[in-house]
Amino acid sequence: MLSNVRTLWMVFLKMFKKKVTIQYPEKKAYLPPRWRGRIILSRDPDHNERCVACYLCAAACPVDCISLQATEDENGRRYPEFFRINFSRCIFCGLCEDACPTYAIQLTPDFEMGEYNRQNLVYEKEDLLIDGMGKYHGYSFYQQAGVAVGVKPKGGGEKEDPPVDVRTLLP
């Protein structure tokens, strides 16, 4: 009971403190690089799409607002045929970025994406894909993976031996 009275008094005293409001949009707040705003898809150092259409972001999304379909180029390199984020549903939780094994999907410090028409909040791959690597530089998933898919010869990735010669008789 007394603590309630104390609370009342303390809140009352806040009246005489300086306001913390930043007068957006006249003044803009500083947003750290890891701010969770508009989602983008990045490219790898070779300027190819980083996204390998593994569906993990879609699975991680708590509001199920990511939808995609995997497809392959002639070498078997996976990429999304379409990649759609329904921002009218997105809650910017960043779980998709956490789930992404290739640093493809990233959240950016931009939140000014209001629209008068809800339909315009549905972003397709063309809207999401940027030209750079985003926050994570230099990472190329296919250099780490075991599949070749035209990116490198089999066994040519990082920490890989050249393919085994099945026919050798050496011990």
């Binding site: 809140v11 806040k14 009246m15 403190k17 300086k18 306001k19 913390v20 409001t21 007068q23």
Partner: peptide, 14 residues
């Protein structure tokens, strides 16, 4: 108006 303004004042907002 009074309520919104006063709430703001007590929460250090505008």
């Amino acid at each position: 108006y009074v309520e919104r303004k006063m709430l703001a004042v007590w929460q250090q907002r505008s």
